[in-house]
Each structure stands twice: as structure tokens, then as C-alpha cells.
Nucleic acid binder design. Structure first.
Lengths: 103, 103
DNA sequence: TTATAATATGAATATGTGTTCATGTATTGT
DNA sequence: ACAATACATGAACACATATTCATATTATAA
């Protein structure tokens, strides 16, 4: 498909999308949030409690992740439950955690 | 070791390492550099030419990537050739590019 | 209605980051 | 020795980002 001399450069749009996605994973707080949401849904206050973060901070980070469609939410009364919404990114995160912990 | 909900929290060191690695991939310029180095070694000036970046900028980014051991280098006279040095990260990058382009 | 709980939002701030400019260092050739 | 080439480095700047605080919104309960 591609020879050594034939280099396929990345277009601006793809480049931006990829860098934005990795940016989501480039912050410890967001990694911890996504890691919590790996196989369950959780409310904002629950996440804040478990990670010892203030509620506003968690809300801001969740908005960031939601804009990139890495998480989704559903409302139940006053509570809003967040869960993962991108299998591919979660898989990459899991791989990286495994790789980092297994040295 | 594991709670009832089967959640393993991430220690500070792992968290820092993972976030740093993703930070390397969170910038368009560094993505383009790594993408160029996918299956070849290139000199600093060659990278700068191909990506239309100034030499200093490329040097700074390569230092960043070298500190994270994502690239390595060898000297040949006045020229320094850089190449990839982390199969796992390159694989993740390739996966993400494929995922972004086939979408 | 009023009060309370859960979450979102915007402003402010402190810190981090990407790029450029000027200059330094290392190597080769004359 | 000197000049030229390839690359690295540090300072400076503009811009982005993470977090906190105060306040707004939304939904439930009394």
C-alpha cells in the first residue's frame, strides 16, 4: 500500500482529532475519571468523593470528555450518571495502564 | 488488593508516567514527527524540511520525545539521526491514526 | 412556595506549553 | 587556525490549561 519512499502525510483534520483525543488522556485527573468509569456508571458527586476532587472540577473535566464523546450521561432525578462512550479510547487506556504497571 | 466493586486505583507514579506519555501524543507537531519516524530514521534537518518547521522547534520536540524514551538517536559526523524507540507507543499511534481515518 | 440537593457554568488565576530568536557546541573540511 | 554545517540550548513570549470560587440551573421534597 505504501512504499518506504511514499509517505502519506496526515491531514489537518485527522491530526487535530487525534491530538485532541490524546489530550484527554494527558491529564492525571481525566485518566482517573475514565479509569473509574471503565466498567460502571457513576454520578458526578460519587466520582468527586472517590477521587477526592471538588464537584466543580469533576463537572469541568466531564464536560471536556463529553465534548469529545468519550463519555455519555443519563439523568435520573437530580442525579446525572456518567459512563464511557468510546470503546477504542478505553481500550488504549487499559493497554497503557497494563503496559505501565507490568513494567 | 481489590475492592468489592473490583476497582484497582492507580498509584501516583503510574498515573504520572501514563499522562506524560499521552502528553507526547497530544500535540500535532509531535504526532507528525513520530509519524515520520514510523519506519525510518531521519536527521533533524530532514524532519524540519519535510514538516516545514524551523530547526530549533524540531530539536526541542525531539528532546521532549527523547526524555520519554520514545525516540533514540545516533550520530554520524555532523548529522544526528533520530528513530523510534517505543514499539508500544508507536503501535497505539498507528491504531489511532487508522481509527481516525477509517471513520 | 420555599428549601435543599445535584450538577453546570463563568470568571479569575496560577501554572504549563509550543514556538521563535539568538546564541552555543560539536564536527568536518580547508 | 578558520569557516561552514548540523544540531542543541536558554530566554522570552503568547497562548492553553487545570483548578477553585462564587453563582446559576434543574429537579425533588416539604
Amino acid at each position: 500500500m505504501m512504499s518506504d519512499e511514499n509517505y502519506q502525510s496526515l491531514d489537518e483534520e485527522t491530526l487535530f482529532l487525534i491530538s485532541q483525543t490524546f489530550k484527554a488522556l494527558a491529564d492525571p485527573t481525566r485518566i482517573r475519571i475514565l479509569h473509574l468509569l471503565f466498567n460502571r456508571e457513576l454520578s458526578v458527586s460519587n466520582i468527586a468523593e472517590q477521587l477526592d476532587l471538588n464537584q466543580s472540577n469533576v463537572s469541568h473535566q466531564l464536560r471536556f470528555l463529553k465534548n469529545l464523546r468519550l463519555v455519555k450521561y443519563r439523568r435520573d432525578g437530580k442525579t446525572i450518571y456518567y459512563s464511557q462512550d468510546d470503546e477504542h479510547v478505553m481500550k488504549i487506556l487499559q493497554q497503557s495502564i497494563d503496559h505501565a504497571t507490568h513494567h
